[in-house]
Simulated scan of single mutants.
Amino acid sequence: MTQTSPPGWHPDPGYTGIGPVQERWWDGNQWTDHLRLPPATIRRRRIRIGVTAGVVALAAIGTGVLLLSDPSGGPKENAATAPSTAPSGAPGGGGRGGGESRAPERQLPQTEDGYATDLAGGISLPVPDGWKGKSGIAGAGVTTGEYACPGDTSQQCVRGGVFSMPATALRLDTSTAKATATKDISANATESYGEKIYGGITSHQELKSEPVTVAGQQGYLVRWKVVTKNGDDGYVQSLAFPSPRSKEMLIVVRSGFDINAKAPALSVMDDITKGIKAASGTSSGPGTTA
């Protein structure tokens, strides 16, 4: 978090993977001891690679990922919002019988031109020319190529997408970056190209499984080619590496590209992976390589 981030509930950065994912109160300057389970009434829409373009809650994260700004100038009308009511006992919080006290209206995170920034993770994703980027408190994403989904034309799919999120939000094995990426790839493929939108995945081929240096951190990536029943086949990649902000936090970056003449070339996935860097103001090692 930064000094410019207003108070609010956000995914707990100290989540250990044991028990349900909780939200922790950020008071505008630091994380407090106030925790809660995400309210059942607040439902975040998922975004699958190739599904529901522009929706800002990322796949498989029950608490949602708050993507707030669009460096590429894309629409923000779909942006998810976090509850801004302060917890009882927290600074500015309302007690029993009192009126609700709300935090100031949420400000957009400060980001660099040409990048979508994940503030909690301390990383920035490059936004290729013609793509849309969204920055957020606990996640970031870039997408391109909207079209009607093959299994449900009432929904919009995208030809390519790359999204970051904390590994703990996905309840993955976070013992090593390799274990995290290896575990996540199957879920990534299912979220990206499974279910009724693509009719499920009939087969997959592993294209890569290797260590990689990202944002100065030693990570690991796994890449599959998947074959679907309906619509385009696709490439999916799960990348895991320690956050430049905290070695204790593993970041997962999920990528998914359609295999289609109108979709981005697979080399763009490599370019984005290589271009991930520590966010401005975050200390990191030397430049990235892949």
Rank of each mutant, 00 (worst) to 15 (best):
V252H: 02
S175L: 11
I137L: 13
W25T: 01
G28C: 07
S124I: 09
G130E: 10
Y147R: 12
P75A: 15
G50P: 01
T117C: 04
S164Q: 04
S164E: 10
V51L: 11
P166E: 09
G54Q: 06
A215K: 06
S135Q: 03
G19Q: 10
A86T: 01
A179I: 11
G199M: 04
I42H: 08
A167Y: 00
G92T: 02
S246A: 15
G200E: 00
S186A: 15
I47N: 06
R254Y: 03
E112M: 12
R245V: 11
G130M: 10
L37S: 12
S84W: 05
A261I: 12
E191G: 09
E191A: 14
P83V: 10
L221C: 08
A278K: 03
T289M: 02
T168G: 13
V21K: 02
N188P: 02
G121T: 06
T273W: 01
I185A: 08
T32I: 11
T153W: 03
W9K: 07
A59L: 08
I47D: 07
Q22S: 12
G216F: 04
D173T: 14
N260I: 05
A53M: 09
R223H: 05
S186Q: 14
K229W: 07
P87Y: 07
P126F: 05
Q217V: 09
L207G: 05
K274M: 06
T117P: 05
P150G: 01
Q217M: 13
E100D: 10
A60S: 15
Y193R: 14
D129E: 15
T288K: 01
T143V: 12
S246K: 08
R45A: 13
A179F: 10
V214K: 05
D118C: 11
K247C: 03
A103D: 01
W224A: 01
K262H: 05
T2D: 14
Y15E: 07
A240Y: 00
V252C: 05
T182K: 02
Y220E: 01
Q155E: 06
E248C: 03
R159L: 14
D113N: 11
G130S: 13
E195G: 13
R223N: 06
R106P: 07
V214E: 00
G19R: 14
M1P: 00
P264V: 09
R254L: 04
I201W: 02
D12W: 12
A148D: 05
Q3K: 11
T32V: 11
V162K: 06
P244G: 07
G139H: 02
Q107K: 15
G141A: 15
T182V: 13
G139L: 07
Q237E: 15
E206A: 14
V127W: 01
Q217F: 07
T213F: 01
W26H: 04
E248S: 15
T117A: 04
G151E: 01
G19E: 09
T168K: 02
V214I: 15
R102S: 08
K183A: 14
